[in-house]
């Protein structure tokens, strides 16, 4: 299949991205480059200098809302993509509303309790919507421990499932990028198998 055909197919889909940090910003850029038509990105944080070790932002964007900056960066990479950027603190009540109509949702949070919250919310309140999660990506090296697991048709896990990010084991661009791109790769795989709904608004 040619890239023009792949891009054309992907342009008909909408993907939700929960969080615009290392996982979310990198995954969003990969999906935008691939031509996924609409990205719904939610994050309430502003860019700090420490984020630049792994997140898809520039020094001139420090202090900006991540969602605004990411929308700007995606527009510079692929202006054909529609980015719906929301500076919202996600919770079990607003997730089903914010990501309504998304064909796939990417979990791109930093904290484990938020990862658990979105898994519970999407799996119980949005049945049938695939959730692609990142779990275990801190540090460097050990590429062989990073894996992809399809739990079932609605749940996919990318990561080493064992390392926890902390001061002594920081998340870094290379390893976070592997997991983020694995998540993007999974989204593309799910969407390439899906039939496009040409009648959708």
């Amino acid at each position: 299949m040619r890239f023009s055909e792949i891009k054309d197919h992907l342009s008909g889909f909408r993907v939700g991205i929960a969080g615009a940090g290392g996982l979310g910003s990198t995954c969003a850029v990969a999906l935008a480059r691939s031509g996924v038509g609409t990205l719904v990105i939610s994050d309430f944080d502003v860019i700090e200098p420490a984020n630049l070790n792994r997140q898809y932002y520039f020094t001139s964007q420090v202090g900006m809302l991540k969602t605004i900056a990411l929308k700007e960066n995606i527009a510079r990479i692929n202006p054909d993509i529609t980015v719906i950027a929301l500076a919202e603190m996600l919770d079990h009540l607003n997730i089903p509303e914010i990501f309504a109509g998304c064909d796939v949702i990417v979990e791109a949070f930093d904290k484990d309790d938020m990862k658990e919250m979105i898994a519970e919310t999407v799996q119980t309140r949005m049945p049938g919507t695939p959730l692609v999660m990142g779990s275990g990506l801190a540090g460097w090296g050990k590429s062989e421990t990073i894996k992809f697991r399809k739990i079932d048709e609605t749940l996919y896990i990318c990561g080493d499932e064992s390392t926890t990010a902390g001061d002594e084991m920081p998340p870094m661009a290379a390893r976070v990028g592997i997991v983020a791109n694995m998540q993007a790769n999974t989204v593309i795989e799910i969407l390439m198998k899906k039939t496009r709904d040409y009648f959708r608004q």
Binding site: F109, D110, T124, G136, L137, E161, T164
Partner: peptide
């Protein structure tokens, strides 16, 4: 199975159980 239901949810013989750890970092 949501966390609040761990006490009340019973696993039966033959069930297919999946347990996935969620690690901080993103």
């Amino acid at each position: 199975i949501p966390r609040e239901e761990y006490e009340s949810t019973i696993i039966h013989d033959g069930d297919n159980v999946q347990m996935i750890y969620l690690m901080s970092g993103g």
